[in-house]
Computed example of a mutant assay.
Amino acid sequence: MNHHTDDYIYLDNAATTALSPEVLDEMMPFFTTHYGNPSSTHAQGRVVRTAIERARKKVAELLNTSPAEIFFTSGGTESDNTALRCSVESNDIKHLITSKLEHHAVLHTAEELEKKGKIKISYVNTDAKGNIDYVHLDQLLLNHKGKSLVSLMHGNNEVGTITDIATVGELCEQHQALFHSDTVQTMGYYALDTQAIPVHFLVGSSHKFHGPKGVGFLYLRHSTQIKPFQTGGAQERNMRGGTENAAGIVGLAKALELALSEREAVKNHILTLKKHFIEKLTAIFGSEISFNGESANLEQGLPKVLNVRFPASKELGDMLLFNLDIAKIACSSGSACSSGSNVGSHVLRALNCAGGQPNIRFSFSKYNTLSEIDFVVEKLAEIYEIKMA
């Protein structure tokens, strides 16, 4: 199935993914026939309410938890904000431990809470590839007398580094800390079992796993008490006011079910593309290119992300991304959530990879093909005026 408009090659799947046709089919009736308000008590409302609760049950099953621990939101950013702001507010937390590599949904929220004098932030050390220093994390937890909140992402959206969240969770358990993990990039790609990982908050955003945009969820462990983030109605068991995005919620559950059922096949397909891409790039550029973070680590990196550091070129300057766009290749220079701003990537800056050379993030999906990868490599050789063998 071809998702491309005008032969555009789409390699920006960490930013968003194409909606699966099966997901659209599942959603359509909620745009057309089943348009009742789920809070209405008449039959039209009850049909929609039932569909939402069925979706909640499905998501809960896939995460090995109970439906009472799943709250639907507008996406990853709202889920992260809810976890951080509400746990600080409701659990008397004065200390937040995070890293400088987190998504802005976490970092900006944390910075704002610190500016308001509600918390003090400690940043855990990371190595040159973005791996968390677990010994340092243990020390940070040990040195703080009150209750801490730890917020560390599972898979880095820019450099593909994976954090062992089971280990982090166990450390948090030892120190009676709350643990929030932004799992936006790994939800649907990894089997996340809430019974096996000691975590208080997990986050999903449907458009990262071939579902619709504008809908996500927060897993909230039942033992963790928080007050609502958004008030105004009794929706989501009094946790989030506002009429539910019924079509989106139905789409999210279907997309997550699909993603997890084809997880191994998709992972193998994506890794095949990535390995091929790395080999081709290395054949052309040799030691002039390198790969940021753990994105080229086929064993341990996030499969869908490859962050490439290309040679600096006087002719090109910082126009590499622009040239790829002209060649109808969609990729990014960092997180899409800060695109349009020319500040570059805060993640690469934190890892000291930002200087002088163009860094491009390619991210893959089940819809990409080997012939697309070959085309991209050809274009890159053309842009750099390298003769291919």
Rank of each mutant, 00 (worst) to 15 (best):
Y190I: 13
V150Y: 07
A246N: 15
F31A: 03
L316H: 09
Y8L: 11
H175I: 10
Y134V: 02
L107G: 02
K145P: 09
G248Y: 06
K304L: 14
N292W: 11
G293K: 10
L320Y: 02
N157C: 09
D325N: 12
M153E: 15
D6L: 11
L302I: 09
I284Q: 01
L316T: 09
A234P: 06
R85V: 08
M239E: 02
D374S: 08
V376N: 02
A283G: 13
P311C: 15
L142P: 03
G344Y: 00
L252P: 08
V343T: 06
G293I: 07
R349G: 04
G155S: 12
E382G: 00
V343C: 08
F71H: 02
A196P: 06
P303M: 00
F375L: 11
E382R: 01
T126P: 05
T163V: 07
A246S: 15
K213D: 13
Y35W: 10
G241S: 08
K57P: 04
G117C: 12
G293P: 08
D318Q: 13
I383T: 04
D374R: 11
V124C: 14
F375N: 12
K208F: 01
L96A: 09
L137M: 07
I383H: 06
A350L: 12
T82Q: 05
T5L: 04
N81K: 13
R49G: 10
E89C: 12
S148Q: 04
T167F: 05
E236F: 15
G344F: 01
S338T: 03
H276F: 10
G169A: 07
V88I: 02
I383M: 07
I326V: 05
I70M: 01
I360F: 05
A55M: 09
L107Y: 02
E244Q: 02
K274G: 14
G344C: 05
S79F: 06
L171V: 11
T41L: 10
F364G: 01
